[in-house]
Design a protein around this nucleic acid. Sequence first.
DNA 1: TCTATTATAGACTAATAAAATCCACAATTG
DNA 2: CAATTGTGGATTTTATTAGTCTATAATAGA
Lengths: 131, 131
Amino acid sequence: MKYSQATDYALHAMLFLVAEAPDKPVSVHLLAEKLGVSQTYLSKMLTKLVKAGLIHSISGANGGYRLKRNQEDISFLDIIHAIEGTTSMFECSFNHGNECLIQQVVIDAERQMEQVLKSKKITELAKQFKG
Amino acid sequence: MKYSQATDYALHAMLFLVAEAPDKPVSVHLLAEKLGVSQTYLSKMLTKLVKAGLIHSISGANGGYRLKRNQEDISFLDIIHAIEGTTSMFECSFNHGNECLIQQVVIDAERQMEQVLKSKKITELAKQFKG
DNA sequence: TCTATTATAGACTAATAAAATCCACAATTG
DNA sequence: CAATTGTGGATTTTATTAGTCTATAATAGA
């Protein structure tokens, strides 16, 4: 059970945007260069972040990606959900329906994790990051 | 990000052992039948549980799997770790070492989840299960 | 209007991991 | 010795992740 590398890329890309370029647009080209990853692959993640409403995209020359207005509200969970989807990490495969006691325990644990990820905003990190 | 089906099988197998056969050995054959899954595949999970010291195996006729003495102590986390391994679900792939702030946040969240999984014992569930 | 720059979308390929099977072997009971 | 049971390794199948490639659309600036 592991978060995908795509999530890792997305979190780092968001931290870069928040810390280094909170208002001006940054191209995938530059972002990929800064992170040292493939730009074609990174662009997939950025498109997902756009669809999730976390960033804004501007086509054409001098375009790129820019944070949304509400950047103070963007949590780790928002970013992770944008990339990994929102389905639970545990789904009982037996046919005792939604009543599975095991599933209830694991999902309860998952909620605790999500609570932490939801309360932690990416901007907090940017402040630490810059000192 | 999803727990494997193997974990689902292992949790259900353990619940069965705790609830229905806390002292006598149960064969994979029977266990697989009760759960409605392939016995060859299920046996892989059971072997992992043995290696993790959660259950005990007895070869030969009338053999099978039996719980260890300390069954009151067996937590969800023990079972999950036995199957999924103990490596963290997030590993930063960039070369800023162990100092990655993003990784610290995600691992902190993971710890919260593990706390719940560790505090929840499989025997508790068995009691609920039986009413 | 033309060209360069940028994002988006979809098809496609490659690599890795999960799920499952098969078989040979070892241990134990009776 | 024969039947039953667990263990280990090799192998296959299927699904997911990671990544590439190409065509298309939007926009800025000459």
